[in-house]
Design a protein around this nucleic acid. Sequence first.
DNA 1: GAATAATGCAATTTATATGTTACAATAATT
DNA 2: AATTATTGTAACATATAAATTGCATTATTC
Lengths: 68, 68
Amino acid sequence: MKNKVKIARVQVSLTQQQLAEKIGVTRQTISLIEKGKYNPTLKLCLEICYAVNKSLDEVFWIEKESGQ
Amino acid sequence: MKNKVKIARVQVSLTQQQLAEKIGVTRQTISLIEKGKYNPTLKLCLEICYAVNKSLDEVFWIEKESGQ
DNA sequence: GAATAATGCAATTTATATGTTACAATAATT
DNA sequence: AATTATTGTAACATATAAATTGCATTATTC
């Protein structure tokens, strides 16, 4: 689950801790999502977007892999 | 978790069953998501988007509710 | 209007996202 | 380089997304 959370977070000058608090989630959850080790729920994705002032597509869109 | 899955699915003439098979998920999961009773994972959201040829924003974006 | 397709929904099970706690590792600041 | 802030990660607990099975209800089609 690659994404642009870290880039977007840094752009608005938030630490993982601050973003987590703003959203009401633990820092570990943010860390794991940034590292691509979690497949977050839509609700969490939306809350992250609101916190960093970006859209779902900007932060979470991944082109479909052409493969079989 | 309101969304536009049903609208998008009908636009590409797929039944819940067909969409579910295309994505590799059960029909019930699609049904519950359409009804807004599930908070789907990002991976599932993306797979739905690929199947209906729409973006995350088009199918799943929800404006932030202004006030607390 | 009977038969079939499509959808809604309930109960139970399974997989996994997230919480909690804690500590290690790295970056930033003095 | 020592202190502090920030981030990575591990083990275990909890909540919930998703699977499974089954049946009821609502459209469609004949």
